[in-house]
Amino acid sequence: MRKWSFCCLISVFIVYSFALAAGAAPKQAVPNSIVDISKENTYPNPTQDLPYLQPSKFAKQLTNSSNAKIENPELIRLLNESSVSSTPFAIGYRATIYLGQWPLNYQSLETSTNWEYQKINTNVLDNRGGNAPQKLYYKQETLKHVRGGLTAQVPNEEAVKKMMLLKAMKKTNLPLAFSTVVGIGTKKDQPYQVPVKKLGYLYAYAPAVNEKGKVTYGEVYIVLKGNKKKIVVKNVTTQGVGAWIPVQDRLSFSFTVSDQPR
């Protein structure tokens, strides 16, 4: 039994080591206080479907030729919709096409979660005059919008937010969105016991992910020389950026009892 357990531990360590070497960070542990309200939420939030956009053969050829890494889905989409025909008579042909200044890629440096990012609801049960324990349940009293956003202004904000959202979703495996809503009347059947001669307070919080990293900008050119095509990026700059991204349809509950009103 001891030999089998030791072998299992070695196997787990090897698998974990290979995962880290491949850049696969462990998913963040979700506390037991986090509750999924996606089925109970009276306000249907739209699902954030932001799969990584696959470049076309032509776009892949161009991005592979670039002197700077290109991950911006909007720029890849533009390249996917472009084409340049090759011709045997292109000897001596030269052209440079300026596509503008773009955010090229986002490098995530730190990802953390504040499970009590914003308090959105308080339920109270006064059992000071009761003869037996009473049950307190969560019920959303008002419709609540929870919004995130970048912590500082950067050029081409929407494209940067999309890249940050993609990285944060991949690292946390959580349903993230820069805006989410908890509808009025949303309920959960989980009871919280309020003792005799006590007041019970049930607080509901919306969690959010804090994403921090660097975004790289550059002026993008398509350079054509004969039948050769490539991307050249000039004036490359890097800027630090941070964002708060709410977790969609998840709540964190905190329950406490008191002798006096709070």
Results as ranks from 00 to 15, higher is better:
residue 4 W to A: 14
residue 4 W to M: 15
residue 4 W to K: 15
residue 5 S to I: 15
residue 11 S to T: 12
residue 13 F to R: 01
residue 18 F to A: 09
residue 23 G to C: 06
residue 28 Q to I: 15
residue 29 A to R: 11
residue 40 E to N: 12
residue 44 P to M: 07
residue 46 P to R: 12
residue 47 T to D: 10
residue 49 D to C: 07
residue 49 D to P: 02
residue 49 D to N: 14
residue 50 L to R: 08
residue 50 L to Q: 02
residue 51 P to R: 07
residue 52 Y to T: 14
residue 53 L to D: 01
residue 53 L to I: 15
residue 55 P to C: 04
residue 61 Q to P: 04
residue 61 Q to F: 09
residue 62 L to R: 00
residue 62 L to G: 04
residue 62 L to Q: 02
residue 64 N to D: 15
residue 64 N to T: 13
residue 65 S to T: 09
residue 65 S to N: 05
residue 69 K to H: 14
residue 71 E to K: 09
residue 72 N to H: 06
residue 74 E to P: 00
residue 77 R to A: 15
residue 78 L to P: 01
residue 86 S to E: 11
residue 90 A to W: 00
residue 92 G to S: 06
residue 93 Y to D: 13
residue 95 A to G: 03
residue 100 G to S: 06
residue 101 Q to W: 01
residue 102 W to G: 02
residue 103 P to C: 10
residue 105 N to R: 11
residue 109 L to A: 12
residue 109 L to Y: 10
residue 110 E to R: 11
residue 111 T to S: 09
residue 113 T to R: 05
residue 113 T to G: 05
residue 114 N to F: 07
residue 116 E to Y: 00
residue 118 Q to M: 12
residue 118 Q to E: 14
residue 121 N to L: 00
residue 128 R to N: 05
residue 128 R to K: 09
residue 131 N to D: 13
residue 134 Q to K: 15
residue 142 T to D: 15
residue 144 K to Q: 13
residue 146 V to Y: 05
residue 149 G to D: 04
residue 149 G to N: 06
residue 160 V to C: 04
residue 164 M to N: 03
residue 168 A to G: 03
residue 174 L to K: 05
residue 175 P to L: 05
residue 177 A to E: 01
residue 180 T to Q: 06
residue 181 V to W: 06
residue 181 V to N: 05
residue 187 K to Q: 13
residue 188 K to V: 14
residue 188 K to F: 10
residue 190 Q to N: 13
residue 193 Q to S: 15
residue 195 P to Y: 08
residue 195 P to T: 08
residue 196 V to N: 02
residue 197 K to P: 00
residue 198 K to T: 09
residue 201 Y to W: 07
residue 204 A to R: 06
residue 208 A to G: 08
residue 212 K to Q: 10
residue 212 K to C: 02
residue 212 K to W: 01
residue 215 V to W: 02
residue 215 V to T: 06
residue 220 V to M: 03
residue 220 V to L: 03
residue 222 I to K: 08
residue 224 L to P: 00
residue 226 G to C: 07
residue 226 G to Q: 08
residue 227 N to V: 11
residue 230 K to M: 12
residue 230 K to L: 11
residue 233 V to M: 01
residue 233 V to F: 02
residue 233 V to T: 04
residue 235 N to A: 10
residue 240 G to A: 12
residue 241 V to W: 00
residue 246 P to I: 07
residue 247 V to M: 02
residue 250 R to L: 11
residue 251 L to E: 03
residue 256 T to D: 08
residue 257 V to C: 07
residue 258 S to G: 11
residue 261 P to W: 01
